[in-house]
Design a protein around this nucleic acid. Structure first.
Lengths: 223, 223
DNA sequence: TAATTTAATAATGTCGACATTTTAAAATTA
DNA sequence: TAATTTTAAAATGTCGACATTATTAAATTA
């Protein structure tokens, strides 16, 4: 068996991160050391090191002598995360528009085409759609050229993805939503290519906040 | 001896974070497990858990089987961090101006007064000055009401503080710089109280970028 | 019975030991 | 001597064990 170049802690970190974001664990769920050791086939040390990193990433919380828990969720936190993400995405887009060259433009056009084609297709696999959707937005902000902002963007994206998987799965799947969404994508592309920074920023912020409106409406209906 | 409410890993994390930010360790310096165990009087597990969190915070890097190192520094990274920080601070300030009430206003005035008085005083202790400086900027953005943006702000502030301690210590101490700085502080207060969001944002971004200009100039002179 | 105390069970956090790998030094070869 | 190989030393990452603390269940008391 070829030895992995990653150590056990790094591997387990990947698995745990994914499982939390995918919603395998419930918010506030207790993460028993013993159970996790069995599930991932690892010892105490690497497991606790991975959990330590998840604490720094705010996906896990811990209390002394009371162990580890998956981070809780709330409407306020959802709103805050999406709001922050919208603003950061706006910043990245602003910088990208300023610095974008011909390749940046063509990548946007290409990604937009792939997304548009798939959105119009018959049987939509949501995972594939998410891939193309993700790629399109990445194309928009690529060339923003700020590693730190990109890292922040990524970190907020992870957290919002967790909320999506926990709360929005059924809500964003319906055809109508997808269509409104798609109109915005085309508009975003046009504004980016026209280098209309202000308008593009405004739209991307609204675009990102869309799921928040949906989920809040859905919560109100339940009460 | 009363037992601390924090576990060993959390304590050691505080110490290590501080020591790295304060510049006790050099960039790219090897962090030997054995040495750290002796220095902080702890065992392997909590130490490695603390280091794991520092990895997630980008203050430490690690390579499998080659241990831990303090993160490196570069002009590009310095610029990126300060740039990102400037933008984030601008966002926080924008939100604070939108939501700020009478207490927010009065806190700014109070913090501004304390900073102005101390800046004009005879023997300036830089630590005390940093405290008052920090408080003033915090007063400006307090009430921004976004925990996530604040957290990002804090994280970037930490990293920029490390650069300041490593590179800028002597540069920002001189009287002239402090004076220019102080004019901007007054201007920031006025713009905030006038609720001139755009102008305040523009100024805070320039204000935060000041040290970058200084350090870049100083580097050019050396070559 | 309800509330409190005590006992038993389970889980956490820390330590030292050990196998594996890297690094440094010594020995060999060309 | 310079380059390569071999040997020795040091350091890392992982494991299981153990003391301490929290949690649950049983027993006691009012």
């Amino acid at each position: 068996m070829k030895k992995s170049r990653q150590n056990t802690a790094a591997q387990i970190l990947d698995s745990l991160t994914n499982d939390i974001i995918q919603g395998e664990y419930s918010p506030r769920q207790k993460l028993h050391i013993k159970t996790l050791k069995d599930r991932y086939n690892v010892g105490t040390s690497p497991l606790r090191e991975a959990l330590s990193q998840l604490i720094a990433k705010d996906l896990v919380v811990s209390e002394n002598q009371r162990g580890f828990y998956v981070s809780g969720i709330s409407i306020n936190d959802l709103t805050d995360i999406y709001q922050a993400r919208a603003k950061i995405e706006g910043l990245c887009l602003e910088m990208a528009i300023q610095k974008g060259d011909d390749y940046w433009e063509s990548n946007i056009i290409a990604a937009s085409h792939r997304l548009a084609k798939y959105t119009k297709s018959e049987n939509i696999d949501m995972d594939e759609w998410q891939n193309r959707h993700f790629s399109f937005h990445e194309a928009l902000v690529s060339g923003c050229n700020s590693p730190r902002l990109f890292q922040i963007r990524q970190s907020l994206y992870e957290k919002s993805t967790r909320y999506r998987n926990l709360w929005l799965k059924e809500n964003v799947t319906n055809f109508e939503t997808l269509q409104v969404n798609q109109n915005e994508h085309v508009a975003l592309m046009v504004l980016a290519l026209e280098r209309d920074t202000k308008a593009a920023q405004k739209l991307i912020e609204a675009h990102i906040m869309t799921p928040v409106k949906i989920i809040k409406k859905s919560f109100l209906n339940k009460v």
